[in-house]
Amino acid sequence: MAGVSRVRRQLPTSPWLFAAPGLLVVGAFVLYPFVSTVVNSFTDRRTLLPGRFVGLANFRELIHDDMFWTGLRNSTLYIVGVVPALVVLPLLLALLVQKNIPGITFFRSAFYTPVVASIVVVGLIWVWLLDERGLVNSLLETVGIGRIGFLSDQWLLLLSAMAVTVWKGLGYYMIIYLAALANVPRELHEAAAVDGAGAVRRFLTVTVPAVRSTMVLVAALSSVAAFKVFSEVYLMAGPDGGPAGEDTTLVMLVQQTGTGLTGRVGYASALSVVVFVVTVALMLLVLRADRGERA
């Protein structure tokens, strides 16, 4: 690195010119909004009205707001429903496409297609598939089960939205697992096979320990994403999260409260602060679980 220090003398201003556009954008549209969200959460600011400092009033209101608890419950349930599926299913899928058999690259790409599509497209595809008169119900009726109101029942709708999230994420995490599986030494599998371990046993004693850190990574990524769920539920339950808002998620509530000309920026910011706190807590929790198990 000896040559680098000489650069400074030669071109004193250019390093900052290189970094300036990036710093400006990130500062103005990420870090400043972050600080201003925290500040606004202590005010009664509205879209068209500058706010006054109100202390913890927003947070006190939040505790007594039923919609807040509904949103928090749904977003938390989303983690519970989505994360186990997204940790396990893509791993199984990666094992399925790992072996190099003819046509496998086609299958790998095909399984990735849902990742590429916009969540709006995916949401609308599934709204139609799960419609009272849609394909899934046609098939269920054909096999004699009868039609199910996937999108009319509060809990079925939330479950359906989770299924859509899992469906869209499968290919993404499959690729992450494929990279991890490539690093598992084949000798381990062979030794286990020689010892008479079956496929399930080898999966649990060789594969899982070998990709454990990747599983933790996937758990961290998918739990943070799950808690911030917006689009799937917005599209499937409607902008208000169902007739009585019973399927509203926390981020949907932020969007409903804070936007538009009558937006309650202060209160929406307090809700956003909850999103920050939970997100950070989730990351710490997963990282701690990782360290605890490894020790």
Partner: peptide, 16 residues
């Protein structure tokens, strides 16, 4: 900046 969740700052981005 990478760690800040976009969903949490969206209202402030809107006012900005």
């Amino acid at each position: 900046a990478m760690l800040v969740p976009v969903e949490g700052i969206i209202i402030a981005q809107f006012t900005t």
